[in-house]
Design a protein around this nucleic acid. Structure first.
Length: 500
RNA sequence: GGGCCGUUAGCUCAAUUGGUAGAGCUGCGGACUUUUAAUCCGUAGGUUCUGGGUUCGAGCCCCAGGCGGCCCA
């Protein structure tokens, strides 16, 4: 325990911080531990609420309980004090301290030391007040943990920055913040349940990698002192999960963090949770069905419905079959002019110019098709939609379509205009894969620092033979966005922010 | 990377044309034995994000920077 004399007499602190430090010091001086190690709690607040859900006003149960909670409201009168206690899950219960039950000293201690924000213990009879409020009528109270900072006022919203920087305060004050944490946990748990029910094995693959790959993105670089080498934080687990499939883990999934060295906005975070799963003898068609089922089962398990209510209040229907459309035909329709994998890049640039869409003039056919498609079609999509058959050149790890030249067996799942998941019939021919990665390495040498590297060990694994497989990647944060309508920074408990 | 907006008390926000920086809640002192954001009386609380500049005088105008938000690339 800190010696009281070591507590600085901080005259320069704002009054409200100073006062609480003085109250802590006073407790210590009186021989009372403001942070006791243990309290004789008999029930949590939820248990009390559930057990005594139907008491009439002004009822005395005769049952004595010991409860704890954070004081969130105080209504002190002369000889009878009320406090609303809040449990971590947001459950509230009223504590009443009356002169004739706790005595003059305890009541006066309460008034002079208990503040909003403090954790307190109250022992007493379960009763209802005359107004019918379920309460514990104290015959004893103790400080459980003295709060040294005033809680922000509960009746005005904290500004968004403070909510993110001090998420602990956000969680105390805002039911929606607590709800989001529970929903996220429920979704992740539902995903795992769904996978386990379908014979998938969960693995954890390296997040520190000597070579990054599996996506086109810039990595974070870090340094191993012991190995005297640079390491990369992974941008995707794909190449390791495929090694798993080569090794016979035929149905495999991983839920873990990816890191991409980019800025953040309402749909991007440099650190984000990713689900990837691979299954031997499946294709992008069957994986699309599985992906839909996973999302629907998550919604059902975490929210109890597949017609979810978004933060805006509107309803969003995830139930039933979802539409799918093909990239080249849908782009052709929107453009009013046929685009195929043979359409030269120059012509696509002319289309972009006509649409006053600014693009990098160096972009080739594949990226131009995707740019135009996103602008003309993707931005308009609202209902869940699988967009199928992407240009081969922008999907180096994807299998060539079995019957359409120049197109890859890849889909993207769009929900309310943003990309939620992407699925493939995986490329498993090691010779073609080597050609594709060699091309990427060439782009890299040419200055494209998002292009992929040649991963010899990955190619060696493929050379042992990978069964035909389907694979899917889905952002967990984005799944939460889809189910709740929240921005990505609300779905992540502690998003990256610059230091204050 | 560019543009625009914001940054004021513990929290949420005001402040006219450049002229003593205010309110609500919170805090502190007091009254009150059935309150529900209790009420009533009294009272305190400020490096106006930081650093420069202009001016008799700057929260406000100018310059540079920090942090945040939105839009664009």
């Amino acid at each position: 325990m800190t010696d009281e004399t070591q507590v600085p007499q901080s005259d320069d602190l704002p009054e409200q911080l100073r006062v609480r430090r003085e109250k802590r010091a006073r407790l210590l001086a009186d021989g009372v531990d403001p942070y006791p190690v243990e309290l004789p709690r008999t029930h949590d607040l939820r248990q009390i609420r559930e057990t005594y859900s139907d008491l009439a006003p002004d009822t005395a149960t005769g049952d004595v309980v010991g409860v704890t909670g954070r004081v969130i409201f105080l209504r002190n009168t002369g000889k009878l004090c009320f406090a609303t206690l809040q449990a971590g899950d947001g459950t509230e219960l009223q504590a009443m301290l009356s002169l004739n039950k706790v005595g003059a000293d305890a009541l006066s201690d309460w008034k002079s030391t208990a503040d909003i924000g403090d954790h307190v213990f109250v022992r007493g009879e379960v009763i209802t007040s005359r107004r019918g409020e379920l309460s514990v009528l104290a015959d004893e109270w103790r400080m459980a943990a003295k709060s040294l900072r005033p809680l922000p006022v509960a009746h005005k919203d904290l500004n968004e920055e403070t909510r993110i920087r001090q998420r602990y305060v956000d969680l105390i004050l805002r039911p929606q913040a607590r709800e989001t944490v529970r929903t996220r946990a429920g979704v992740v748990r539902a995903l795992r349940d769904s996978f386990h029910g379908r014979g998938f094995i969960e693995v954890e693959t390296p997040m520190l990698q000597t070579q990054h790959g599996g996506a086109t993105a810039r990595p974070f670089v870090t340094r191993s002192n012991a190995m005297s080498m640079d390491l990369y934080l992974r941008i995707a687990p794909e190449l390791f999960l495929k090694r798993c499939v080569v090794g016979g883990i035929d149905r495999v999934f991983e839920i873990n963090r990816n890191f991409r060295n980019e800025g953040s906005d309402s749909t991007h975070s440099p650190e984000f949770a990713m689900l990837e799963f691979y299954a031997a003898y499946e294709t992008y068609d069957s994986m699309a069905v599985l992906t839909r089922e996973l999302i629907q089962e998550s919604a059902q398990a975490a929210l109890g419905t597949q017609v979810v209510t978004l933060a805006s209040g509107e309803e969003y229907d995830l139930s039933g079959e979802w539409t799918s459309l093909s990239m080249y035909p849908s782009l052709s329709d929107a453009l009013g002019s046929e685009v195929t994998p043979e359409t030269p890049a120059e012509l696509l640039h002319k289309h972009a110019e006509r649409l006053e869409l600014e693009v990098d003039p160096k972009l080739g056919h594949g990226k131009m098709v995707e740019e135009l498609w996103e602008h003309l079609v993707g931005d308009q999509l609202y209902a869940p939609t699988f967009v199928r058959d992407f240009p081969v050149e922008t999907s180096p790890l994807t299998r060539q379509h079995r019957s359409i030249d120049g197109v890859a067996e890849k889909w993207d799942l769009y929900v309310r205009g943003f990309e939620l998941a992407t699925g493939y019939s995986e490329l498993v021919d090691p010779v073609v894969e080597r050609e594709r990665l060699t091309e990427q390495a060439g782009l890299r040498a040419g200055g494209d620092d998002e292009a992929m590297r040649l991963d010899e060990d990955f190619l060696r694994a493929l050379e042992y033979g990978m069964p035909p497989s389907g694979g899917v990647g889905m952002g967990i944060d984005r799944l939460l966005m889809a189910l709740t309508g929240l921005g990505i920074r609300e779905t992540i408990l502690f998003p990256l922010v610059r230091p204050e």
